[in-house]
Amino acid sequence: MKKLIFALLLCGLLFILIAGILEMPALGSIDNQSYNEVAHYYIDNSINDTNAPNMISAIMTDYRFFDTLGETIVLFTAITVVISVRIIAAGKSHYMKGDDIDG
């Protein structure tokens, strides 16, 4: 019963999503609004600015490197949290004595 109610509700959500999607420009059309002057700037100037042919690399590690720095911090936080949940909060005795987690 619960599953049926949820299925009906989500069918409504799918209908709304698809109705919104059909207003978007078609897949792969050149006059897509997201293909605007920002993308044109990257395509035209990234080879002169950075000398790297791979545009994704140029954007990720030059134009938007601060974004990538924050995302490495996300990875670092993930490690910290997983170690604290798995080892420190579980109260493993050899870690509490100050040894390394290699055990």
């Binding site: 897949l27 792969g28 059309s29 997201s34 990234s46 042919p53 994704i56």
Partner: peptide, 13 residues
Amino acid sequence: SIGYISGGITPII
């Protein structure tokens, strides 16, 4: 999919 342009190639110059 938003970034795809039909006939376009991968963004490696």
